[in-house]
Computed example of a mutant assay.
Amino acid sequence: MIDNICATCGTQYPQGEVPDVCPICSDDRQFVPESGQVWTSGVRLQQQRSVLIRQLYPEVYEIKVLPDFAIGQRAFLILTPGGNLLWDCIPLLSEQLVSFIRSKGGLKAIAFSHPHYYSNMNEWASTFDCPVYIHGKDDEWIFNKGPRISVWEGGEKPLWEGMKVIHMGGHFPGSAVLHVPSLSPGGTLFVGDTLYIARSRKHIAIQYSYPNHIPLPAKIVREIFDRLLRVGFDTMHGAFDFQNLAGNAREVLGASVGRYVV
């Protein structure tokens, strides 16, 4: 068993290149537990955890580790006639999950919102023989650069079937959202925690650090909001299983930003 997975964020480091402290967690946007850095292995995760696969729409499945591990995020499998996309990642790729995804046609690509969810992305990409799309402004946070990682630049990364990844910045320099126009009448955004939907689903936060409650400058929040206004959406899904806003996401975002940015 090779202990190369950070138990706090789920990032997998190359064998033989494991740092004393995970640089993603020692950054202000995350944290190292008071008890200190803890490492685990893929073997232990397979032994101790399972994977939940739950259908949200006919074309969308959420995937997460049970019991919660590390940040506890979910990934999304989005099915389209032109190929399937994985949005964000979870640190456990079980045989059950591989079989399920292959039964749906495999993966055409993997795309990310930001570095906290890179986890074991190289294992995913190798298993499904697909590229991984990461914005170039987050290149410095790729500590395990596999051969299938493809860095993109600029404001948008067009995919297929009208889908595109849109650069936002804020939480991380390369933070992004995924736009899938066909899933709801006004279009759907998958936002990771580039934007953070509150448990009440009546507020959306845009911060530099969510666990440490560090705000962004009002100017940056306004820039992100202005970019989002140019995108058609009425529905939004975040990184965690309570973060689903259907039908009124645009209005909730506008009211949220309006409380703090004039």
Rank of each mutant, 00 (worst) to 15 (best):
G10P: 04
G10S: 04
Q12L: 14
Y13K: 01
P14M: 15
V18K: 11
P23S: 09
I24K: 05
C25D: 12
D27Y: 02
R29M: 10
V32A: 06
E34Q: 07
V38E: 11
L45I: 10
Q46E: 14
L52S: 09
L52I: 10
R54K: 14
Y61V: 04
I71C: 07
I71H: 07
Q73W: 00
F76H: 10
P81C: 11
G82P: 02
L85M: 04
L85V: 08
W87P: 00
C89Y: 01
I90C: 08
L93C: 03
V98L: 08
V98G: 04
I101F: 09
R102C: 03
S103A: 14
A111Q: 00
S113P: 00
H116L: 12
S119T: 13
N122W: 02
W124C: 12
T127P: 00
H135M: 05
H135K: 08
G136H: 09
K137Q: 12
I149R: 05
V151E: 07
V151C: 12
G154E: 05
E156F: 03
K157A: 09
P158H: 07
W160T: 03
V165W: 05
H167V: 09
G170H: 10
F172V: 09
S182L: 12
G186F: 03
G187K: 00
F190S: 01
F190G: 01
V191T: 14
K202S: 08
A205V: 12
I206T: 12
S209P: 06
P211D: 15
N212Q: 13
I220H: 04
V221L: 07
R222W: 15
E223T: 11
I224H: 10
F225C: 01
H237E: 06
G254A: 11
A255S: 06
V257N: 07
V257M: 08
V261P: 02
